[in-house]
Amino acid sequence: MTKINELKTDAAVTWCPGCGNFAILTSLQKILIELEEEQVVNFNNVVMASGIGCHAKIVDYMNVNSFHSIHGRVPPTISGIKLANPELTVIGHAGDGDAYGEGLAHLIFAAKRNININLIVHNNRVYGLTTGQFSPTSPAGFEGPSTPQGSPEDPLNPIELMLCAGATFVARGFSTNVKHLRVLLKAAVKHNGFSFIDVLQPCVSFFDNGDYYREHTYELADEKHDLSNLPAAMERAGEWSYGQGNRIPIGIFYQVRKPSFEERLLGSKIIVKTKPKDIGPVLAKQI
């Protein structure tokens, strides 16, 4: 069996033809194979998790351990998995409604703690599965079934948000630029700490802006950009705030090494391999 077939499943893929999710799926499969060859990951130790939305179906299409969780709750779900067994490579997939709307507090706290998990946001800037309502990253004026007069809100800039929250790996990808996306995914998995990638993902049914991204994105790696410089990262993040704009940077905005949450909380302890102790001595102290 070829490696790629090893990662595929029999589940019928139900994304719309042309959906940006396909490219995220194949990119992930490719980098996992490469990382296994490099002995960075072992397929048995990979766990994927997803929220609810079109993006979330990705776990059914990958023959690895997975937890199809609920809307917005991917960060705590994978935090629990990682804390229980830090030897696992944990990759979370969330939607923009999922991560930036329903579960925003969890996202901020996962970044704040710097827990060593990966979060890939499939950012189509729309609620796909629920048929096209505006999302936290839709541009102002976005016309959807719940905002026929156009959305009355400005979008959130998740890159700036994650930089402020203390994420130690902050990146943006574009699903059509698969070569670039693969580099980001690989770097994220290798990063020790909270890795965040916002992936611009065209939704052909409700927000088909692939051409716009193709025209306006540029790669940070092609310009002089110091990954460990937070003010510089903030400046780049501010170049495009999910509305209009001519230059959309993609690539790694910021990456630094800090102790991870599980290193600080657990040291070298592995919870699933630790049995609780006899309660006798603690009980005796209560006399």
Binding site: V47, A49, F67, S69, I70, R73, P75, P76, T77, I78, S79, G80, I81, K82, L83, A84, N85, L88, A105, H106, I108, F109, I271, V272
Partner: peptide, 20 residues
């Protein structure tokens, strides 16, 4: 001690799935 009770419950579920 996580950020709220929703996170509490989901961390517990994630942990249990992993065997804790």
């Amino acid at each position: 001690q996580p950020e709220n009770e929703i996170a509490v419950a989901l961390i517990a579920l994630g942990g249990a799935y992993a065997g804790a």
